[in-house]
């Protein structure tokens, strides 16, 4: 029974990294999963480094199941200091690998909500600059 809720997942749930909001984010995006009501909002602060837009800081708030919240915490830990273009290409499998536990199809949606919010946020930010 403990399989899915391994120590590191519970730890990210109970002590989420990059949790909260940012004072002056470059963009903010929020989405919810209509099926279970999981909701995640992510703020992102960017900087310019070596000619590329890089995620300088990020923060999330939300509510929902352990999987959606822990996966977002792990995701933000992973993407800070990475170029936006690279993050936009993140393979969903990468998030599942970060979680490192087998998920049923229904729960994969929970795990990928944070990534969806982040990617949509990036897309919108890019559109707004054009």
């Amino acid at each position: 029974m403990q399989d899915l809720y391994r120590e590191h997942i519970l730890d990210h749930y109970e002590n989420p990294r990059y949790h909260g909001t940012l004072a002056q984010p470059d963009f903010t995006h929020e989405e919810s999963n209509p099926l279970c009501g999981d909701r995640i909002r992510i703020d992102v602060k960017l900087c310019h480094k070596d000619g590329r837009d890089v995620i300088a800081n990020a923060a999330f708030t939300g509510e929902g199941c352990i999987i959606s919240q822990a996966a977002t915490s792990m995701l933000l830990e992973d993407v800070v200091n990475k170029p936006v273009d690279e993050v936009e290409q993140t393979d969903p499998q990468h998030v599942l690998d970060l979680l490192g536990v087998p998920l049923s199809a229904a729960r994969v949606k929970c795990a990928l909500l944070g990534l969806k919010v982040l990617k949509t946020g990036i897309k919108r930010w890019k559109l707004s600059r054009q």
Binding site: L4, G37, C65, I66, I67
Partner: peptide, 21 residues
């Protein structure tokens, strides 16, 4: 405990319940 986490844990015990709205 979020109902989805609960339903997943119960499923591991063979107990099928519904979670959501």
């Amino acid at each position: 405990v979020h109902p989805h986490d609960l339903a997943t844990l119960l499923d591991a015990e063979g107990v099928a319940i519904r979670a959501g709205h």
